[in-house]
């Protein structure tokens, strides 16, 4: 192989700027879609554990649909199809006035997909760790909603912080899909550098290390929280 290595692309203008902006964008999309995923996941996961049959059914449909359709397809649906099928005014707004439309769409699409997976974890946590304590809570005179809010939900959420780490990592990796709708995140910028300099190996090494560092930070953060709240001992209690 007669590839000519030249690591200096990684510190030369403008490539260094491209790569850094890609890294920051990846970080931003990851964090924002994770926030969406957590919010959706908790709401839908709670609905999935609710006494109301309608709520459980709707939440179940959400989870099944969003977990089953490939995230890339979902991204295309939100970006290309949605503006065409909503009323004209809304479609026009989506195409013309929505700020950073690609980024917002990517955050929403990835967040909704990951949210379905988080919801399933939330449901499982409530069912396995939170719900078994409901009779004891009810026996003290707490009303069902209070028992759920004060005991089953916080316990269920504490128990799943560890398992949620891999959902967080999946969300980070999914951010690279957004390049397909034109978001210049880390993977896109690496290709960009490759196209200009033919130094693809160096650019993608940068991307690899970037994803690795973000992923390790996410893992460390989740582990720290899990340790703080004693999640591991809660999970052990159920087995």
């Amino acid at each position: 192989m007669n590839y000519r290595w030249d690591w200096s692309v990684l510190i030369r203008e403008p490539y260094i700027d491209w790569l850094w902006s890609g890294l920051l964008l990846t970080l931003a999309i990851s964090i924002l879609s994770w926030a969406v995923a957590l919010t959706i996941g908790i709401v839908v996961g709670v609905a999935r554990s609710a006494p109301s049959r309608v709520a459980r059914l709707l939440a179940g449909i959400y989870i099944d649909v969003f977990r089953s359709v490939p995230p890339l397809v979902q991204l295309f649906l939100w970006y290309f199809v949605l503006p065409e099928i909503v009323p004209d005014g809304v479609g026009l707004w989506l195409k013309r006035d929505l700020p950073y439309p690609e980024i917002v769409t990517a955050v929403v699409a990835i967040g909704l997909f990951a949210g379905a997976r988080v919801a399933e974890q939330v449901r499982a946590g409530i069912e396995a760790v939170g719900a078994p304590l409901l009779p004891a809570a009810l026996a003290t005179g707490l009303r069902p909603l209070q028992a759920f809010r004060l005991i089953a939900l916080p316990l269920g959420l504490r128990a799943i912080v560890g398992p949620l780490t891999s959902e967080f990592l999946i969300t980070i990796k999914l951010s690279s899909l957004s390049l397909t709708i034109g978001v210049l995140e880390l993977t896109a910028q690496s290709r960009h550098v490759e196209n200009y300099t033919f130094q693809g190996f160096e650019a993608f090494t940068f991307a690899t290390v970037g994803y690795l560092v973000i992923g390790l930070c996410a893992t460390g953060l989740m582990r720290l929280i899990d340790g703080r709240i004693g999640g591991a001992s809660l999970r052990k209690a159920t087995t």
Partner: peptide
């Protein structure tokens, strides 16, 4: 009514957190 009757379970059922 339940608040006026205390209950103690075989497996304690304390809130672990």
């Amino acid at each position: 009514l339940r608040s006026r009757i205390g209950m103690v379970f075989q497996s304690f059922e304390l809130y672990p957190h």
